[in-house]
């Protein structure tokens, strides 16, 4: 379980995260929801230690962060743009001890990627698939996904959504931020709603759907008054 306990973050004079606590379970998909600038990406980066929190603790199954067990997939590539997909894989193989080349090859095949393609020649959707494949192939227990559907076409989106319900995601905990919540709504187990750096609601998506007959978007409308 990922436990985020009382975290705070300030950029210059702006308090971006204000005393946020939540958990994300293994084998479940937890979605961080919020309008732009509510601190969703900052929380993911904070969990990875990329933007350290000013206060608070992050525990992975009760222990401090272990980068062998958690993978982060940002909404952009973190490799130099002149790299080919092959070079990215070589880098991952060299530096990530758990990197599974067979799994990566399978995902490359499923996503119909060409390993010799350079990153700067790829569309945003293809790049998102490359990022996701690299993240999953790290064979992490927990996968943090930052806006994996941002600016990508409907077919790429479908492929990624299908992947969430496939065997490669089995037993992995997923913490995801997205604006395209309706695309993955039926896959999400738990939602954490943020507003101005605070958690305003945390709920089990199935409960809301079956007991109250509401979708996540309905709850968002209620909360954000849109």
């Amino acid at each position: 379980m990922i436990e985020v306990l009382g975290v705070k973050k300030r950029y210059r004079k702006k308090q971006v995260i204000e005393d946020v606590s939540f958990t994300a379970n293994k084998g479940e998909i937890t979605c961080l929801i919020g309008l732009n600038g509510t601190g969703k990406s900052t929380i993911l980066k904070g969990i990875m230690g990329l933007t350290p929190f000013d206060r608070g603790t992050v525990l992975i199954d009760g222990k401090p962060l272990d980068l062998n067990r958690v993978a982060f997939v940002p909404d952009h590539s973190t490799f130099p743009i002149h790299f080919t997909i092959e070079q990215c894989e070589a880098f991952m193989r060299d530096f990530y001890p758990k990197f599974d080349s067979k799994l990566f090859a399978r995902l490359v095949d499923e996503f119909k990627l060409f390993p010799e393609d350079k990153l700067n020649e790829l569309s945003k959707g293809t790049l998102a698939k490359v990022n996701l494949a690299l993240g999953i192939a790290q064979d992490p227990d927990y996968l943090l996904l930052d806006e994996p559907f941002s600016g990508i076409d409907v077919f790429s989106k479908e492929q990624i959504v299908q992947l969430f319900s496939s065997d490669v995601m089995e037993n992995r905990g997923v913490l995801i931020t997205t604006h395209e919540i309706e695309d993955i709504e039926y896959l999400v187990d738990k939602a954490v709603m943020l507003n101005r750096g605070r958690i305003v609601r945390e709920f089990d998506v199935e409960d809301v759907r079956f007991i109250h007959g509401k979708s996540i978007v309905d709850v968002m409308r209620e909360e954000y008054g849109a």
């Binding site: 980068l67 940002p74 952009h76 973190t78 490799f79 130099p80 743009i81």
Partner: peptide, 15 residues
């Protein structure tokens, strides 16, 4: 440099 900073990748290497 750039938005997709390589430093982000380097800092997530399990080392």
């Amino acid at each position: 440099q750039g938005r997709g900073t390589f430093m982000m990748r380097l800092l997530t290497i399990p080392t």
